[in-house]
Design a binder for these strands. Structure first.
Length: 498
RNA sequence: GCCCCCAUCGUCUAGUGGCCCAGGACGUGGCCCUCUCAAGGCCAAAACACGAGUUCGAACCUCGUUGGGGGCACCA
């Protein structure tokens, strides 16, 4: 454990072989929160030692995703820092050098076994149902002899010399001490035959050289955790605080999300990939709030947090080691909550692209007027054009049968529209102050329920049975158009009545 | 098969031996508000996986069982 007076340095270390998903984003979020809260540094390190698995664009997408969430890093491949380079592909020599140090200390050894032989050994072990591990052939080799073979150019890897006796106790911050028999830990490969390091070595070396105080990572590393501690101790380094986060399970809670299931999610308007979320109408405030609460809690009732709230309130102590099922319904809830929390201006800006891509010619002044009456009616930004798109349509096409009021005839409905027309046409402008009371009085005089009367008007004016509040909508549409549409509605009803 | 981790309402969780015949949230059902739809408010149904033990007392501690998850590569 690091002494508490040491500066907090945490790192998010993704491999750029895939897309940034919710689990990774949550790890990065916790890193960020801890760093910001403690006045420490948040470092982005790209774990791209395996060039064969390079995916073009992945690194860019990753950074874009983190920035969209608001998780700015203090050191990283794009902005540099005092512990660079921050791409493992640029640190090959460092790892090789450290592997040599381990050999010199008799903590590692050269291995000349071919992949073919190894896979045969593995098959054999599988068949006999014994633990699958390296059989130790080269561990027994004389170091001087081995060095000669290496010098002669014989293909080789470098393996860690895991102690065969005793056990090791490691401490996970969430789970406490974990003790494992050393004989159950393999002699893992540190350096491949092509000279590149493997994760086990590279990550430990980097974490030390970058002076990482807390390693926050997924629980898929729990099983190699003892090995990692062995490596760190073999160098004689101080261990960081290890925090293994639980994984995310699919919504059913049965297992983690498969590739195919992830791809199918998009049909329902959801995604586990951060970079899809913006286009689906989700806002980063909601994403961050939602994922933070899958594995962390503040108390027994507070659920809504801004990033700044969380910086203030986050603590490693309140992390939960149990796996969590992803619940997209709750995600929708958080998105609606945070949307309602936005200012009119802000929401206007965010919703604009969705109106445009839905094909609307948007007058921003009108959009600004619409926002207050649609804000509580949308849960994702892409709901906005379906709720408020009709404000940008010149004409409206009500269905005749929908123009007829509940329990009324076409003739009665037409008459109702006519008196509404007479009233509204006399008003200088239509808005909530000028129109509401007169309309209600009128409904009363016609012996109609407000619901019946407003219903007919709603369909005539908006072309739909469901809309934002009628009078506010009419105020935005404007007197002239409202009257035009009412006349049109009357004509439709009269045609039907005859 | 071997190793490791986890276990409270359908889901996310609060709970660290008595405040708990278990609290909050999403979702679900009902009611209120109401010009429709929302939003909001109120109410309801809904859980300590099982079995032993420790203790005056256990959701909380121990052991076992069961269930779930992760890992066992010259991937990360």
């Amino acid at each position: 454990m690091k002494p508490s007076n040491q500066p907090i340095r945490v790192r998010f270390a993704p491999s750029p072989t895939g897309r940034l998903h919710l689990g990774g984003a949550r790890t990065a979020l916790y890193d960020y929160l801890l760093a910001r809260q403690m006045g420490g540094k948040f470092i982005l390190r790209i774990e791209d030692i395996d060039l064969k698995r390079f995916v073009p664009g992945a690194e860019e997408e990753l950074m874009q995703g983190l920035r969209w969430l608001g998780l700015e890093w203090d050191e990283g491949p794009d902005i540099g820092g005092s512990c660079g380079p921050y791409r493992q592909s640029e640190r090959k020599e460092i790892y090789l050098d450290h592997a040599q140090q381990l050999i010199a200390r008799d903590k590692a050894y050269y291995c000349f076994c071919t992949p073919e032989r190894l896979s045969k050994v593995r098959q054999e072990q599988q068949r006999s149902k014994s633990p699958q591990k390296y059989d130790g052939t080269c561990r027994k080799l004389d170091p001087v002899e081995a060095a000669k073979r290496v010098a002669a150019g014989e293909p080789h890897v470098i393996r860690f010399k895991t102690p065969k006796e005793g056990s090791i106790t490691v401490r996970d911050h969430l789970r406490g001490d974990i003790t494992v028999e050393n004989r159950s830990i393999d002699d893992y490969i540190l350096i491949r035959s092509d000279g590149f390091a493997l994760y086990h070595l590279a990550a430990m070396v980097d974490d030390h050289l970058m002076d990482i105080s807390h390693v926050i990572r997924g629980s898929e590393w729990l099983s190699t955790f003892p090995l990692h501690a062995h490596i760190v101790r073999a160098f004689g380094w101080q261990e960081p605080v290890w925090v293994h986060l639980s994984i995310f399970l699919k919504p059913s809670g049965k297992g983690k999300m498969s590739k195919r299931e992830s791809a199918e999610l998009i049909k329902d308007g959801y995604s586990i990939f951060v970079n899809d979320l913006e286009g689906l109408g989700y806002i980063p405030e909601a994403v961050v709030n939602w994922i933070a609460l899958m594995g962390w809690s503040y108390d027994d009732h507070t659920e809504m947090f801004s990033l700044d709230d969380m910086i203030e309130k986050f603590s490693l102590e309140r992390l939960n080691p149990a796996p969590a099922a992803i619940n997209f319904t709750k995600f929708d809830h958080f998105n609606g909550l945070h949307i309602r929390n936005l200012s009119t201006q802000d929401l206007c800006k965010r919703v604009l692209p969705f109106f445009k891509s839905a094909g609307y010619q948007v007058d921003e002044k009108i959009l600004l007027e619409i926002i207050p009456i649609i804000q509580q009616r949308i849960t994702t930004l892409d709901d906005a054009p379906v709720v408020g798109g009709f404000f940008f349509e010149d004409t409206v096409h009500p269905k005749t049968e929908e123009l007829i009021g509940a329990k009324m005839t076409a003739k009665e409905s037409a008459d109702a529209l006519q008196v509404a027309y007479d009233l509204l046409s006399k008003l200088p402008v239509i808005n909530i102050d000028t129109a509401e009371i007169p309309l209600r009085v009128l409904a009363d005089q016609l012996h109609l329920k407000a619901g019946q009367f407003f219903g007919i008007l709603r369909v005539a004016v908006t072309g739909r049975t469901v809309s934002p509040p009628l009078i506010e909508s009419m105020a935005i549409i404007g007197k002239e158009k409202v009257l035009e549409r009412i006349i049109y509605g009357i004509k439709m009803l009269e045609k039907m009545a005859t």
